[in-house]
């Protein structure tokens, strides 16, 4: 049984692959999208539990993706991946409903830890 379906949205192939390779061995199903639009179309098709999205992307940035997901799929948790975390963007993303943010470069353990916490939170909130 899969622990959860995770959608990774990042314009960088290496980040997507890293996430996939880090999370898959731990029993997560990982779906990948190159940009916000692709990510949202996957959201419309499959049942996604958690979204990992980059903050800075061409066309649609992470904050917009976050807003759209929280608007259309309020039950889905979002973790922001950022290359240069600043206090204000972190605060802004948390205010908009992101569960957490994770700074690049991250270790597989740090990623798994953040993902697991987010999914636990999702499960707990669904039970209540």
């Amino acid at each position: 049984m899969k622990k959860g379906i995770i959608l990774v949205i990042d314009d960088e192939d290496i980040v997507r692959t890293s996430c996939s390779r880090a999370l898959t061995p731990s029993g997560y199903e990982v779906k990948l999208a190159k940009n916000g639009h692709e990510g949202l179309s996957i959201m419309g098709g499959d049942k996604i539990d958690l979204v990992l999205t980059d903050l800075k992307m061409p066309d649609m940035d992470g904050i917009e993706v976050l807003k759209k997901i929280k608007q259309d799929w309020p039950g889905v948790e979002v973790i922001i991946i950022t290359g240069y975390q600043t206090v204000d963007t972190a605060v802004k993303s948390i205010k908009l409903g992101a569960f957490d943010y994770i700074e690049k470069p991250f270790t597989p353990d740090a990623l798994i830890n953040a993902v697991s916490k987010a999914l636990d939170h999702k499960n707990k909130s669904q039970q209540t």
Partner: peptide
Amino acid sequence: INSPLTGIVTF
């Protein structure tokens, strides 16, 4: 730089 670094660290 952080994205390739993520790849290096993860892999």
